[in-house]
Amino acid sequence: MLAIVGFILLPVCVFGIFILHGGSMEPIIHAAPFELGMIGGAAVAAFLISNDGHTIKHALKDLKKVVSGSKFKKQDYQDLLCLLFSLVKLARAKGPSAVEGHIERPAESAAFQAYPRILADKLAVSLICDYMRMMTMNQNDPHQVEAILEAELEKVHEENMHVAHAFQGMADALPALGIVAAVLGIIKTMGSINEPPSVLGAMIGGALVGTFLGVFLAYGIVGPIAARLNGVYQEEAMFYQTIKSVLVAHLHNQAPQISVETGRKALPSGVMPSFADIETAMGQVKVL
């Protein structure tokens, strides 16, 4: 919602104050379609050249996150902690082999079915099942498991960050592309040097619209999109880091409640449920 407000406020402030200050929108309106086509087309072309197909597809898919934010909400973090609590409690009480039925067929597991939004996230389910499976295979060295898990999380995060970097690269290029459009406009103007000053002024003004649009798009739209996606990816990474924190604490032979508290404390403040909320939620978790 805040992103929508920002996108509305941006042109209102820029163009509205320009008009109130006595500026005329006519030169901008006249030149903008041509300049936008030149600058925008060049920016898209550069985006396609500098990124692979996976990143481009990922970028188009994740644009909605600029408005919607992270796919995980506060309740999802609480549900994740409750799911992990039920699994590590079962493993602690009956041994690692007791969770095999849940991690081998999570879609049929009562533990996972209780939290459908977690079950719908393939990466979260994969992390939980793969690393709890390691425990059933007697891979119980917490340091080694932590290192493997951290390496996988870093890989996933880096892949996501490619999208934010791609948009930031476009933002960095836009001012220069605006200058290119302006220079071409000046070249066109120089070809009409014999025209009267009123005509030359209009042509120069149109050329400068290219510089304006390049800077405006870079710092007003594409740059903020890159920054927003960067923040969203950082927040989503914390969701998966929670899985690591709880499982590693469990491997260090911490009690299930302590393992969950370790994961809770690592959460961002805006989505971290209170200790009392988690205690109440864990008290309602069905015994597996």
Rank of each mutant, 00 (worst) to 15 (best):
M238E: 12
I221W: 01
N230E: 14
L213P: 04
G214H: 04
A207Y: 05
F216M: 08
G206V: 05
M238C: 13
R228W: 01
M238R: 14
N230S: 13
E235C: 08
Q234K: 15
G206H: 07
V209Y: 06
E236W: 02
Y219N: 13
I204V: 15
M238L: 11
F212L: 14
Y219A: 07
Y240W: 12
I204T: 10
G231F: 08
F216H: 02
V222R: 00
L229C: 08
A226C: 05
G220D: 04
A218P: 00
Q234V: 13
G210P: 08
L217F: 07
I225W: 00
G206N: 08
N230R: 15
I221T: 04
T211H: 08
G205A: 11
N230C: 10
I221D: 00
L208Q: 10
A218C: 03
E235N: 12
A237D: 14
T211Y: 08
L229H: 11
G223H: 01
F216Q: 10
I221V: 11
R228H: 06
Q234T: 09
T211C: 15
V209F: 05
Q234F: 06
E235V: 09
V232G: 12
A218I: 00
A227G: 12
L213I: 15
A226R: 03
Y219H: 15
I225L: 03
F212S: 11
A237C: 12
I225V: 09
Q234G: 09
I204Q: 08
G210F: 01
G220S: 01
L208N: 12
G223P: 01
G206T: 07
F216E: 06
G223D: 02
G205N: 09
E235G: 13
F216Y: 08
Y219E: 07
V232P: 10
N230P: 03
Y233M: 13
V222C: 00
A237V: 11
G210W: 01
P224H: 04
G206E: 05
A237Q: 15
A226L: 03
E235W: 02
L208W: 06
L217E: 00
V222Y: 00
L229Y: 11
V215R: 04
A227L: 02
Q234P: 04
L217N: 01
